[in-house]
Computed example of a mutant assay.
Amino acid sequence: MKYLLALFALITFNAFAEPVNINTADAETIANSLNGIGIKKAEAIIEHRTKEGDFKSVDDLAKVKGIGEKTVEKNKADIILTSSPKK
């Protein structure tokens, strides 16, 4: 029962996470905001961003080693690329 409560709390936390700007956020923020992205993958996102420049599309996240298209798809609604919405 404790396991189920802990799992529910974890899922609930991610369900209410704020969208994250993958072009500016630190690894901890990315890991806390995206499902299926732990600290190691978040660090890989930052390393890729540093070497290749800002992500131009959410789909570009799949170019990061260890992150597949399914992970990108389930997180699309929580990923932003710019600090302000386009008008």
Rank of each mutant, 00 (worst) to 15 (best):
D78H: 12
H48W: 09
T71E: 08
A77D: 11
A77G: 13
K40Y: 06
L34K: 01
D78V: 15
T71I: 08
T50L: 05
N23G: 04
E43W: 02
L61P: 06
K63N: 15
K40Q: 14
N23A: 04
H48E: 03
L10C: 14
K65E: 14
S83H: 14
D59N: 14
K51R: 14
F8V: 10
E73M: 12
L7S: 12
R49W: 00
A62V: 03
I39T: 10
E52S: 12
L34T: 01
A31H: 04
I39S: 10
K2G: 09
K87R: 11
K56L: 09
G68H: 13
I79P: 02
N14P: 00
G53C: 08
V72H: 10
G38C: 07
L4I: 13
L61R: 08
P19Q: 11
A62M: 07
K86G: 08
G66M: 08
K51Y: 03
L61V: 05
N23S: 05
A6R: 12
I11L: 13
N32S: 15
S33A: 15
G36S: 09
A15C: 10
K41V: 00
D60N: 11
V20T: 03
Y3M: 06
I46D: 01
I80A: 07
T24F: 03
I30V: 11
S33Q: 03
A25T: 00
I80P: 01
R49F: 02
V64G: 04
L10P: 00
I22N: 03
A25L: 02
E69H: 12
K2M: 08
V58F: 05
G38R: 05
T12V: 12
S33W: 00
I39Y: 09
A25Y: 00
E28W: 00
A44C: 05
G53I: 06
E47N: 02
R49K: 06
V20R: 01
A42H: 01
K41Y: 01
L34S: 02
A17P: 07
E69M: 14
I79H: 10
D59E: 13
V20A: 05
E73S: 13
T50G: 01
E73F: 06
F8E: 08
Y3E: 09
E47K: 00
A9V: 09
E52G: 02
N35D: 12
E28D: 07
T29L: 05
L4T: 13
D54T: 01
E43F: 02
A25H: 00
N14A: 15
E18W: 04
A27E: 05
K65G: 12
I11D: 10
H48D: 03
N23V: 04
R49G: 00
F55L: 04
K86P: 07
K74D: 09
Y3D: 07
A25R: 00
T29Y: 01
K41A: 10
A27V: 01
E73C: 11
A25D: 01
I79S: 06
K63I: 06
D59R: 11
I80C: 10
Y3W: 05
L5V: 12
D54R: 04
A44E: 06
L61W: 07
I46W: 02
I45F: 00
R49H: 03
A77T: 14
F16G: 15
S83E: 13
I46G: 03
F16H: 11
V72G: 09
T24Q: 05
K76V: 06
